[in-house]
């Protein structure tokens, strides 16, 4: 399988290579994304392409993976970019530890690397002697925005459950921590917390069972909107209109749900612009600007009716 995937990724990067015309004077930016099957990253890539066309002063090479955890293809992509000698690599790591090595190699090759979306693991960075800034949204802070909206609506002692993302994903952990921050601040009661692996259908099944076990749930915090949609459908099927739901990501499909109140709130992290912003920062460094340091936070905002 992984051979197939790497092949697919290699072909994809090869295609982009041949189609993109080389312009001597323009800096080349290699963009390494996660799964393009995920509409979040798909939109991000579209945003980056639009951005490249708009700025016109750099060359964009984008590579996507087939699924969220496919870090082998990412390693291949980074190594290819090193060989080609791109000026900037902008990367959303599929694994916060596995990608430390290849990124270090890129930096040693003199390439400016911008790490966005998911931060590399701090301990792994220290161990490898790598210093690298992180450009990305505050997932924990964003989740807290949504959690706070729920906390305000429910008040002290409200009973809530969390639907988590993939247990091994950093952003899933960050969002869970953000929800737990709100729970502590507003004195909510956390009844249960389970993963539905970012999936609508699984969230639907898992949540309806949680609801059976705890019929007195008052609020649901879902770590992304796909799962929030599954939760909303489970509530409709159970005929419950008294339970409030918050999500994360602000995908188009939840627009109508926010509108009619089935979803209390979601969080927009402006994913479309995220890659573009990271590219801007990287080009700034290449143009002679100061190196990036620490955590460059990108905006998140609460979306409600």
């Amino acid at each position: 399988m992984s051979i197939l995937k790497s092949l697919a990724a290699a072909t994809l990067s090869g295609l982009l290579l041949t189609t993109a015309a080389f312009a001597e004077d323009k800096p080349v930016v290699g963009l390494v994304m996660k799964s393009l099957a995920n509409e979040f990253f798909q939109n991000m890539m579209v945003g980056a392409e639009a951005h490249a066309a708009r700025r016109g002063d750099y060359e964009l090479r984008a590579v996507g993976m087939q699924n969220e955890t496919d870090f082998e293809s990412q390693i291949n992509a980074v190594e290819n970019f090193i060989t080609e000698g791109v000026d900037v690599i902008v990367i959303a790591p599929a694994d916060s530890r596995a990608m430390v090595g290849p990124i270090k190699k890129a930096i040693e090759a003199g390439i400016t690397v911008v790490n966005f979306d998911v931060a590399l693991d701090a301990a792994a960075k220290t161990e490898a002697g790598l210093e690298l800034a992180f450009v990305g949204p505050d997932n924990r802070g964003g989740a807290k925005l949504a959690g706070d909206a729920l906390g305000k609506a429910l008040g002290q002692g409200g009973k809530v459950v969390i639907i988590e993302g993939n247990p091994s994903a950093d952003n899933a952990n960050e969002r869970r921590l953000g929800f737990e921050d709100s729970i502590a601040e507003y004195g909510l009661e956390l009844v249960d917390s389970r993963t539905a692996h970012w999936e609508t259908e699984e969230a639907n099944s898992v949540f309806s069972t949680m609801l059976t076990a705890n019929p007195d749930i008052q609020g649901v915090m879902a770590a992304n909107d796909s799962m929030a949609i599954g939760v909303v459908r489970a509530l409709e099927a159970a005929g419950r209109t008294d339970i409030l739901v918050v999500g994360f990501d602000n995908v188009p499909a939840v627009g109508p749900m926010i509108e009619d109140g089935r979803l209390l709130a979601t969080v927009d992290q402006f994913g479309t612009d995220m890659a573009a912003n990271a590219i801007d920062l990287g080009l700034g460094v290449v143009a002679g600007g100061p190196p990036l340091e620490g955590w460059v936070k990108t905006p998140v905002s609460l979306v409600t009716k």
């Binding site: 393009l36 099957a37 995920n38 459908r233 995908v251 188009p252 499909a253 109508p256």
Partner: peptide
């Protein structure tokens, strides 16, 4: 792989939504 790729291609990886109410009522 083919069917998955085709599904993503057709939708540009976007979720399709906003179905008639009658349809979702049948589902529940």
């Amino acid at each position: 792989n083919i069917a998955r790729g085709a599904a993503l291609q057709v939708t540009d990886a976007q979720t399709v939504y906003a179905f008639p109410k009658e349809f979702s009522e049948f589902g529940s």
